[in-house]
Nucleic acid binder design. Structure first.
Length: 551
RNA sequence: GGCUCCAUGGUCAAGCGGUCAAGACACCGCCCUUUCACGGCGGUAACCCGAGUUCGAUUCUCGGUGGAGUCACCA
């Protein structure tokens, strides 16, 4: 009876019953096997690769099964809120192709299981907290911060488990009358779970509960014994309580979250049990790792590592499809193999499974991303690539706008060598691409490499002079190169590199050195795709201008 | 420190009691070739340690070691 009095004392204005909420948010009517997943970011506005990694799992699981993927804003910590964060979250994920079916949007909620912002759900949490109090499974706790610190210090001295539990939970057995007095006196309080666990147990005495994790298999988690806070002094729930209530009411079937949550899993197990609810299937993902600055030891990737921030990839101009492809290769170990067998299939056709997920942390590998990106970009048509690069440049690199002045010209450049039997794979990410093709534009052109040592200054001029004299823009590639060979022979360079290798003393150099002179005159670089093709794209006027400037 | 998770080449990883221990990236050669890229061929390189179970352990068990996570009125 005291419990009921306590419940009324703590939550006098909560009228709705748990049953009403159950009715309000019924089981979802979805096909067999459909998964309901969610992303629950806190609105700090900082999204990193780890979030994307997790979101991708949620998204695949839901959309592959004909289920629902929704966005829930977990803003139970008011200190964390950053203005505009929700937009950042939706936009960043959307950029990488992660879209929600339901949940919070910029124009309010979408879906029947809302509200999807935790700070708007106070009534709901209180309703279930009230139920727990009424059943004697939760109680108000008036411990101050100082008192808690004191308890903790004592526990550390005694070398017992720290925390509020058992005999350390001083307000466990407070009566409704005592509580009323304190509340009237204005003392703040939190609501704690009255745990059934035994905080004194150790070693083999610790009770364990089996939880099936879709990624890790059967987990034997120790039972919880902490009287954890479920409602803060402000009346706002903690993550633990909000998670349990929300994921039950929103009928989430699969909870995907990082492995850092593993250690609080016991709390959630007890909470679900006390509330009398089935647990969702947990999917605890491995965390992404990172190499430490100097030493090549491995280190956890906490926030603020620049290359872990999603904005890094946008700033560098990685194509979202490449990032997705990369993520999937580290997410599912059989994806790479599948991709080799199905080079042209849509990424959506790959059957993603939690079983194939690694449960040890993966070190982020930029090399691999770049390699994958080359293949992904190769499949994207030039016109689409142009659009992508253009919008990237507008946002991140306005100094390159010249490139996009002439769409037709730019597309030809982007397609250079891409449609051959053995296509070139020069393009990796936007910042690299614009630099790679910069010599096609007068304002960006600059000489970066030195003339080859085999060719003296006099010969350099002579080569360019003769090249210009005999230059015919209409020549096909064969005729064009024959002329270069002729110039090379006339000036004492081997027409074929093999001849030079055989008798290096008989020649100044070989035709390769001669064409490098031309290459540098035209491109400012010793390395580039095929010169003839480049000239055809540049046009006769620019070609001649580049050569003449060195005479 | 307690508890938890993890452990195959430089990196990502197959493997699920018997394999010459896959593959990809990176690296190094060679070939192709007017440079580069692409492509082809080849190469260097790994089961953390110690017990136990077993005819036989990379694989199973236990114990170390190492790495990571977590011990909040943060998520």
């Amino acid at each position: 009876m005291d419990n009921l009095k306590m419940a009324e004392l703590l939550f006098p204005h909560i009228e709705k019953t748990p049953e009403e909420y159950e009715k309000m948010y019924p089981e979802r009517n979805l096909p067999e096997g459909a998964k309901v997943t969610r992303l629950g970011p806190s609105p700090t506005g900082f999204i990193h690769l780890g979030n994307l990694y997790g979101a991708f799992v949620d998204e695949r699981l839901a959309h592959q099964s004909g289920g629902v993927f929704y966005l829930r804003i977990e803003d139970t910590d008011d200190k964390r809120y950053v203005e505009g964060a929700v937009k950042t979250i939706i936009d960043s994920l959307g950029f990488f192709g992660i879209n929600f079916d339901e949940g919070a949007t910029l124009n309010g909620d979408m879906g029947d299981y809302g509200d999807y912002t935790q700070s708007h759900r106070e009534e709901i949490y209180k309703c279930f907290a009230k139920k727990l109090v009424a059943e004697g499974k939760a109680y108000p706790c008036f411990l101050t911060e100082d008192e808690i610190a004191e308890i903790r210090a004592g526990q550390e001295a005694e070398k017992v488990n720290p925390g509020i539990y058992g005999r350390y939970a001083r307000y466990r057995d407070i009566t409704a009358a005592e509580a009323e007095e304190k509340i009237k006196a204005g003392q703040p309080y939190v609501v704690r779970l009255r745990s059934d666990g035994d905080g004194g147990a150790s070693g083999d005495d610790i009770k364990r509960v089996k939880v099936n994790d879709a990624i890790r298999g059967i987990l034997e988690v120790p039972e919880n014994f902490q009287d954890v806070v479920i409602l803060k002094a402000t009346g706002i729930p903690t993550y633990h309580f909000a998670h349990v209530v929300d994921d039950h009411l929103m009928r989430t079937t699969h909870v995907v979250r990082g492995a850092e949550w593993l250690s609080s899993l016991p709390i959630h197990v007890e909470l679900f049990g006390k509330l009398g609810w089935d647990m969702p299937v947990y999917c605890h993902t491995a965390q992404l790792m990172k190499l430490d600055e100097e030493g090549n030891k491995r280190k956890l990737s906490k926030r603020k590592d620049p290359e872990l921030s999603l904005t890094y990839y946008r700033d560098q101009g990685y194509h979202p499809a490449a990032v997705r492809e990369y993520l999937l290769t580290i997410l599912n170990s059989n994806f790479e193999e599948w991709r080799m067998e199905n080079p042209d299939a849509s990424i959506d056709d790959f059957e993603f499974t939690t079983e194939k997920m690694s449960n040890s942390g993966a070190l982020f590998d930029l090399n691999k991303l770049n390699d994958i990106s080359k293949d992904v970009l190769l499949k994207i048509p030039a016109s689409e690539l142009y659009d992508f690069l253009k919008s990237w440049a507008e946002e991140f690199a306005p100094e390159y706008t010249e490139i996009f002045a002439d769409r037709e010209y730019a597309e030809k450049i982007l397609d250079l060598g891409r449609n051959d039997a053995k296509p070139r794979k020069d393009l990796v990410y936007a910042r690299q691409i614009v630099d790679f093709i910069s010599y096609f534009f007068d304002d960006l052109f600059k000489t970066e490499d030195e003339m080859p040592a085999e060719v003296n200054a006099e010969d350099q001029k002579e080569i360019l002079k003769r090249y210009l004299q005999t230059y015919d823009h209409g020549d096909d590639q064969g005729a064009w190169f024959d002329k270069i060979r002729a110039i090379a022979s006339d000036l004492g360079y081997a027409a074929k590199p093999k001849d030079f290798k055989k008798n290096p003393d008989q020649y100044k150099g070989h035709v390769g050195h001669v064409s490098t002179v031309i290459r540098i005159a035209l491109m400012g670089r010793a390395q580039s795709p095929d010169v003839w093709t480049i000239q055809q794209i540049m046009g006769e006027e620019m070609t001649r201008r580049r050569l003449e400037r060195l005479l």
